[in-house]
Design a protein around this nucleic acid. Structure first.
Length: 289
DNA sequence: ACTGGCTCCTGAGGGC
DNA sequence: TGCCCTCAGGAGCCAG
């Protein structure tokens, strides 16, 4: 494992737009406000047949003329209930929705034409996103949703006993474990590092060797950091007429993410950064054990 | 059942 | 100034 400390620290990531759960929730709220409950789809225009996976060829015809009843979120998926037909949409890393202001951009892959003349554009340069069809009456039956773990903000679903059971006997490092969508959804690379820092747990520690007491604390910190980010996003005015529309709201509050080599906010020693489970990870070797 | 590794794609950033 | 190379990242998928 390559560890970079004070000198020779690789460049920090620039992921202002990377949608994690809080960002996806902010998009959901923004779209809901924009569309209300009366928007009707006049036409779904797919300018290419695929994103991360194929877009069902029959999807445009299936949703044409359908009213968008609601947009909800499950994990990092946006679920558009279009009156009997569902649009399952993941933003990947670079996916974004905006209201068409006449300014076309590269990678505008999907256009949702509404009956009132407005057009919503989905742009996704890296095409890590998805657009698939699901059945609103049985959403959890969709293969991409069937094996998802509990929602982190729902205390009845995601609680200490759940995480303790999931970690029991596991040799996997705790960080990739909490990023495993089957164990708990919505904890991405950024918030995994942030929550572990707050909990004082080294990201490299085997999940099965973290005490029940510390896992209990971790559950609270995961919930807190995500809730804070949602609150920060919610307080940011998101203008869907602006391309991208991301303001990077919560970034100023990152305590370790992207700060390799910089001083720990608690002890002042330089933060460590290294790849764990194929993901860049940031932590304090003094404060996290 | 677990675990680790590969893959998709593009823009940003560093080196020269 | 500009070109070229490397890299990051969500999560599905596969192999051991």
């Amino acid at each position: 494992m390559a560890v970079f400390t004070p000198l020779g620290v690789p460049k920090p990531p620039q992921h202002a737009d990377m949608p994690e759960l809080p960002e996806v929730d902010t998009v959901r709220a923004g779209l809901t406000t924009l569309l209300g409950t009366g928007a009707v789809i006049a036409r779904l225009e797919c300018r290419r047949p695929d994103l991360r996976g194929p877009i069902p060829a029959d999807l445009p015809a299936a949703v044409e003329g359908h009213r968008i009843l609601s947009i909800t979120r499950r994990a990092k998926y946006l679920l558009w209930d279009c009156d009997g037909v569902g649009l399952l949409n993941h933003l990947g890393m670079t996916g974004s929705w905006r209201l068409d202001d006449g300014q076309a951009r590269d990678h505008d892959h999907i256009v949702l034409h509404l009956s009132d003349g407005r057009r919503l554009i989905y742009r996704d340069p890296r095409r890590f996103g998805r657009l698939d069809r699901y059945d609103p009456a049985a959403a959890s039956a969709h293969p991409l949703l069937a094996n998802l773990g509990p929602e982190p903000l729902d205390q009845t679903q995601f609680h200490p006993a759940h995480l303790i059971a999931a970690c029991k006997g596991r040799k996997t490092a705790i960080k990739p474990l909490i990023m495993d969508q089957r164990i708990v959804v919505g904890v991405g690379n950024i918030y995994a590092s942030e929550a572990l820092f707050r909990a004082g747990i080294a990201p490299t520690r085997a999940a099965g060797r973290v005490s029940a007491q510390r896992l209990t604390t971790l559950v609270e910190h995961i919930r807190d950091v995500l809730a804070e980010a949602i609150a920060a996003g919610g307080s940011t005015i998101r203008d869907f007429t602006q391309a991208g529309g991301s303001e990077g709201y919560f970034q100023a509050n990152f305590r370790v993410y992207g700060r390799g080599g910089e001083p720990c906010v608690t002890c002042g020693r330089p933060l460590t950064q290294a790849v764990i489970g194929q993901r860049m990870t940031y932590w304090c070797q003094t404060c996290q054990r």
